[in-house]
């Protein structure tokens, strides 16, 4: 059973963000996910600073949670590595990260549904597409963060690079569709959801495979302990 107590702070946070973004964008609650860190209201293409700020808060919550989970997992690796082999370490590490990350994800889904029902605007088909895209994107972020920390980047720089990557990709995705891989949602994903979801799943798998290959080939020396 998930230990939900420590994640209780996410409920009011997500609700607040959802309500704020709904107010700004006059859209359904999960609009907050559709364009993380993209300041334009998609139907009118009108710039809105509040939307940028609110969506950015949302991406910060997800990114900081994942970085904390991955970093914790890596600094404890010595204890895990001396108990099991390298392949199992990977499974143990990723499973715990996914489990904790899924709790945050499910809280977001729960808040979306509750707020959506209250406002009578839940389009379940669209919501499932956005949630699937969100989960697969979070998986890709997890693997990117694992790789960055593996290459001995400090937590601060990992934070900086991943935020920069997400924001840059969100902006670029409007013109270069391949950039949609690293972001939660964009117009190109909505146009062919099945293809994009498959590509995202494949990307997460390739990154995981790359990380596994690295850990098999090279020794784990240390991870910067500067959280």
């Amino acid at each position: 059973m998930f230990a939900i107590k420590k994640y209780i702070v996410y409920f009011p946070l997500f609700c607040l963000l959802n309500i704020s973004v709904t107010g700004v964008a006059k859209k359904e609650p999960f609009y907050a996910l559709l364009s993380i860190a993209y300041p334009y209201i998609q139907q009118t293409e009108k710039f809105n600073f509040a939307l940028l700020a609110l969506n950015f808060c949302l991406s910060i919550i997800f990114i900081s949670t994942i970085i904390r989970l991955v970093h914790e997992q890596l600094i404890i690796s010595n204890y895990v590595l001396t108990r099991v082999n390298k392949n199992k370490v990977f499974t143990v590490n990723v499973l715990r990260t996914l489990k904790s990350m899924s709790v945050v994800f499910l809280i977001k889904v729960f808040c979306d549904i509750i707020l959506g029902q209250l406002q009578g605007c839940v389009n379940l088909k669209e919501a499932i597409l956005i949630w699937s895209s969100l989960y697969l994107t979070l998986l890709i972020w997890v693997m990117c963060i694992y790789l960055m920390l593996w290459f001995h980047l400090s937590v601060k720089w990992t934070y900086f690079y991943i935020c920069l990557l997400v924001i840059a990709m969100q902006y670029l995705s409007a013109h270069i569709s391949v950039c949609s891989l690293f972001i939660v949602g964009s117009g190109s994903i909505e146009s062919n959801p099945a293809m994009w979801l498959s590509i995202k799943a494949l990307t997460a798998f390739i990154l995981a495979f790359f990380y596994l290959a690295l850990t098999k080939k090279y020794e784990h020396i240390n991870v910067k302990n500067d959280i």
Binding site: K6, N78, V80, T82, R96
Partner: peptide
């Protein structure tokens, strides 16, 4: 093996019991 190598590192935002249960749960 049972090891302490360099500084003792744990899941800092979890309890002592959680940390030990987590490590014991591996094997």
């Amino acid at each position: 093996f049972g090891v302490i190598i360099e500084n003792p590192t744990f899941f800092f935002y979890e309890s002592a019991l959680y940390n030990l249960k987590y490590l014991a749960g591996i094997n």
